[in-house]
């Protein structure tokens, strides 16, 4: 009997290409990670493929206490994207340490644990609980959530709040694992926020989180989301995300900003999408919303990116980081 059914999402290895990359002291076998909130804690994707083959699994943001999240509807599809207002639903750090981290460890996955808190002290507490746990490869600080103490203003929209959270986490972690600060694109000057995070000890930047959006239902004539506004993600935001990476990497090249690894995030669906981020200045990338379209996307993008880099004559990822800046500079010099 013949069947046309084939397993989706396979692309062969790029011969002679070194796919390894690093985020500070964390060595990654390849530069493509899942994005927070788009892969839970790896277990569900593990039913479809081996999550150890991913650059890393970035967990849903972990909170201190269990949180129910928002009422429904929590999502709306938009052209080449989606809005979500999940409200950081999760069981809290105790359940994460008891059930999820051991699973990731047992399955050989590199875990980047995303954390979120209501105030700087909560972030630091979470980082303290995580840092000595075996299997935690890095901590990603999701400062793109509201600061309860500061009128609900998103930490990542204010350099002072960003710095406070990051320095608290960095102090507790004490260099034992890299600390990444995850930035919001909803700011006037992304370089100023990046500077606040790097000046206060962040080892790298993850950029970007979703951008705020909204959809109105023209039949019911009310907002679609129960939370009214939500985070826009997917290919629709990719140009914004590439621009943010470009601006921050450019500031590093100019010497306006300490040089540190950037993890590019936003609308990556293919290897060439990921390549845009690398050329703009990212050392690694995360695949989020595309995982909903194609669960194998984080794996497939890894293979496609390696092929695309090899085809352009790069021997390794590091050689290509920020290459678009070099090309532009060369043109300017001519």
């Amino acid at each position: 009997m013949t069947t046309t059914a084939t397993s989706a999402g396979s692309a062969g290895p790029a011969v002679g290409f070194d796919p390894r990359t690093a985020i500070g002291t964390l060595e990654l076998k390849n530069p493509v990670l899942t994005a927070s909130g788009c892969a839970a804690a790896g277990r569900e994707l593990g039913r479809l493929y081996d999550v150890a083959a991913l650059g890393a699994v970035v967990t849903k943001s972990i909170l201190r206490d269990a949180r129910s999240g928002r009422p429904t509807p929590r999502m709306a599809e938009t052209p080449s994207g989606m809005l979500n207002s999940i409200g950081l639903q999760g069981p809290g750090i105790d359940a994460f340490l008891a059930h999820d981290l051991p699973w990731l460890r047992d399955h050989g996955a590199t875990a980047v644990v995303s954390i979120a808190g209501n105030d700087a002290a909560e972030f630091a507490e979470l980082a303290g609980r995580l840092v000595d746990e075996p299997g935690v490869g890095a901590v990603e600080v999701n400062i793109s959530c509201p600061n309860v103490a500061n009128r609900g203003l998103v930490f990542a929209c204010d350099p002072g709040s960003s710095a406070e959270v990051v320095s608290g986490v960095v102090d507790v972690v004490g260099g034992r694992v890299p600390v990444l600060a995850k930035l919001s694109p909803d700011v006037t000057d992304i370089v100023a926020i990046a500077r606040a995070c790097l000046d206060h000890g962040a080892d790298g930047l993850a950029m970007v989180n979703t951008t705020l959006g909204m959809v109105v239902d023209t039949d019911t004539m009310r907002p679609v989301l129960a939370g009214v506004t939500g985070g826009l993600s997917g290919p629709a935001i990719r140009p914004i995300a590439v621009r943010c990476v470009w601006q921050v990497h450019a500031a590093m090249r100019r010497g306006d900003l300490r040089t540190a690894p950037i993890v590019g995030i936003g609308g990556i669906l293919t290897g060439l999408d990921a390549l845009q981020f690398v050329l703009a200045g990212a050392s690694a990338v995360q695949v989020g919303t595309s995982t909903f379209h194609d669960p194998s996307a984080p794996l497939r993008v890894g293979a496609e990116l390696a092929q695309a880099l090899a085809a352009r004559g790069f021997a390794g990822v590091a050689d290509a980081v920020g290459h678009a800046h070099t090309v532009l500079a060369r043109e300017g010099a001519r």
Binding site: G37, C38, A39, A40, E44, L45, R47, L48, K60, G69, T72, P73, R74, M75, E77, M82, N84, I86, Q89, T291, F292, P295
Partner: peptide
Amino acid sequence: EESMACGIGVCMTCVL
């Protein structure tokens, strides 16, 4: 029949 973004349990949109 809830609205589902991923269908595989990773996104938390389909809850009740």
